[in-house]
């Protein structure tokens, strides 16, 4: 599946909806953007704007969609094969909900490896724990013995242990304290450089997305209202009124003084 060319993720005229007939809710309307291979792209919006739904459509968790989604140059159909899952992995928002309460760290990681037929399971687990900055003593702990930040590291380890090329990040730090957020964001930045990963990150926090991504799409009410570079975002050069409103709200907190 891996291709040398520039294709990471591409969306064209994508609609996603839930329910049928009168109960149909259009969560994403005519969305389109492209993430180059090795790039890092951010989706920003408030709750209900459809930003997480786009990730769910890419991974197949939201089954009702139309339009064109391509990953690494290949168009996706309704079903995702093993090949897709070994290339694309996801980190979820709430580290308290994304780890199985009755599985140790070791079990979570070895399950991922055995699903993808990796050998040398032991060595790989030791290495990935090291990579995500967890001491080896964490290997046999249960989730309830871990803090939020440690859990999120385990979730990142689970996604990366099968060596994907694309990582989807669904608000990976919104449930964490700011000091822990800094650690996780630094970890994600380092892993991207080390492994040449492609990131597609969803967040409600402009500052976080501005820190992590080089290009940002702003979503409102299911539509992408504006796509802008991080330089424009930092210079507060937004064209769409909604983007400006968001920028105001997040910068104003500091400017109030």
């Amino acid at each position: 599946m891996s291709q040398g060319n520039n294709a990471g993720i591409g969306l064209e005229h994508v609609n996603v909806w839930f329910g049928e007939h009168e109960e149909r809710v259009d969560a994403v309307k005519d969305a389109g953007f492209a993430v180059p291979f090795g790039g890092s792209f951010g989706l920003v919006g408030e709750s209900g704007s459809g930003k997480s739904t786009i990730l769910r459509a890419i991974t197949g968790l939201a089954p009702d969609w139309s339009g064109k989604i391509s990953v690494l140059g290949q168009d996706l159909g309704q079903d995702r094969g093993k090949e897709f899952y070994s290339a694309v992995q996801m980190v979820f928002q709430d580290p308290y909900a994304s780890l199985h309460p009755r599985q140790t760290v070791d079990r979570v990681l070895s399950e991922a490896l055995s699903l993808h037929g990796f050998d040398t399971i032991n060595d790989r687990i030791i290495k990935i724990l090291d990579d995500v900055g967890l001491d080896q003593s964490f290997r046999f702990r249960w989730p309830h013995q871990l803090s939020g930040g440690q859990r999120q590291r385990v979730a990142i380890a689970r996604a990366l242990i099968i060596e994907p090329t694309i990582l989807l990040l669904d608000e990976p730090t919104s449930a964490l304290d700011v000091s822990v957020q800094a650690e996780i964001l630094n970890l994600l930045t380092r892993l991207r450089t080390e492994r040449g990963l492609t990131y597609l990150m969803v967040s409600h926090d402009l500052a976080v997305v501005g820190h992590m991504c080089s290009e940002i799409a702003v979503m409102n009410d299911g539509e992408i209202v504006e796509v802008l570079s991080v330089e424009d975002l930092r210079a507060l050069k937004a064209n769409h009124p909604y983007t400006r409103q968001l920028l105001d709200a997040s910068v104003q907190k500091r400017k109030n003084e």
Binding site: A182, L185, A207, H211, R234
Partner: peptide, 20 residues
């Protein structure tokens, strides 16, 4: 001080966030 520095800021981009 550590807490304040660990918050990413749009206007002041850094490569590496300070860790508490």
């Amino acid at each position: 001080v550590g807490l304040l520095n660990s918050i990413p800021q749009l206007e002041h981009p850094v490569d590496h966030l300070e860790v508490l």
